[in-house]
């Protein structure tokens, strides 16, 4: 870890200005990912701008009845918040499924969105990685990839996005707000993480120097009937090998509204729009759920060791939608 400067910001514009004041500057939130990557030599900032004291730590209703979550709200506070639990239970569940109690107390919403992949090649600077060092290659394709992407990957990078929270935010059409020296801006989740393509090192659509200031969840009655399920190789304190955020509204056995997002299958939280379209207006039963999953997973391009994820995600879609149907029917 190289030596670096440290500044604590107390206002948003101050933070943005401080970041612009030095090359290789980074915002420091909870530090749970950045400090780790600095120890690994993956990140070598010259300046850290500490944003934990910014007045962005509130959760409240927007005028339209949506939820506005500040960027420095900790993962713990987000998951414990009564309105989040009431209106978006899958979001609370997703956050609770991530990391550990200690890490959730430290980690912020903004930082969670910007988590880097946990691909073992990315975090080991002795190995090639197109994401960390563009053009150096992707050894995962022919190497260890049993927990790598099956959807939307490219030959340049098959890493997955590690966030659980972001999967729920993708399902609920969250909008990310940010601030730059030129003023504020917004990005919907659907555009926040660009496709991998030939540029796996470009991980978000945020403009340079932008500070995430918050996340807005539009009003969404269906989100109250939602759940998040995570599958991992240890019962807790492990990253997903597959996860799903789902919300469902069923009336008279017909799917009125559905939201589906899949985790640990792509470089970004994977909004399953093909599956959603297949389900809308159709019957809420296991056959329909399976067909919808197949519609989404038709695009899957599994490698030799991660083909199980197709089976896993299909089962998860059916299982979680079935559970939600039973819950809605009760």
């Amino acid at each position: 870890m190289r030596e670096f400067g440290y500044e604590r910001a107390f206002g948003v514009s101050e933070a943005v200005a401080l970041l612009g004041s030095a090359p290789d500057a980074r915002f420091l939130g909870g530090g749970t990912n950045l400090v780790d990557l600095m120890k690994a030599g993956v990140e070598r900032p010259a300046l850290l701008v500490d944003v934990r004291e910014l007045p962005l730590d509130g959760v409240g209703f927007t005028g339209g009845g949506g939820l506005r979550i500040g960027a420095t709200v900790t993962n713990s506070d987000l998951a414990a918040h009564p309105e989040v639990r009431r209106h978006h239970p899958a979001l609370a569940q997703a956050v609770l499924a991530g990391a550990s109690g200690q890490l959730r107390n430290m980690a912020t919403v903004g930082g969670n969105l910007l988590q880097r992949t946990r691909c073992g090649y990315f975090t080991d600077i002795s190995k090639p990685c197109n994401k960390r060092s563009p053009g150096s290659g992707c050894p995962a394709v022919d190497g260890e990839h049993h927990n790598h992407a099956i959807l939307g990957a490219s030959a340049r990078c098959i890493a997955t996005h590690p966030s659980d929270m972001a999967v729920a935010l993708a399902a609920f059409d969250a909008v990310i707000s940010y601030e730059t020296a030129d003023g504020p801006g917004e990005l919907p989740m659907s555009e926040f993480y660009p496709p991998v393509g030939d540029t796996p090192h470009i991980e978000t659509a945020l403009p340079p120097g932008a500070l995430i200031t918050g996340v807005t969840l539009p009003p969404s009655p269906v989100a109250a009937h939602s759940r998040y399920r995570k599958v991992r190789e240890r019962a807790s304190y492990a990253f997903a090998i597959g996860s799903i955020a789902a919300a469902l509204d069923v009336r008279d056995g017909v799917v009125r509204e559905v939201r589906l997002a899949l985790g640990a299958v792509a470089s970004r939280p994977w909004r399953a729009r093909a599956a959603e379209q297949a389900l809308i207006g159709g019957p809420a039963n296991a056959e329909a759920f399976a067909a919808a999953a197949d519609a989404e997973l038709a695009a899957a391009e599994p490698l030799p060791d991660n083909g199980y994820k197709v089976t896993l995600m299909r089962s998860l879609v059916v299982a979680v939608l079935t559970e939600l149907t039973e819950e809605v029917s009760r």
Binding site: G120, D124, K127, G143
Partner: peptide
């Protein structure tokens, strides 16, 4: 990792 001859995920998140 067969290519490099070294481990992938040699830490307590990679080794459960």
């Amino acid at each position: 990792d067969q290519a490099s001859g070294s481990h992938v995920g040699a830490d307590l998140a990679g080794y459960h």
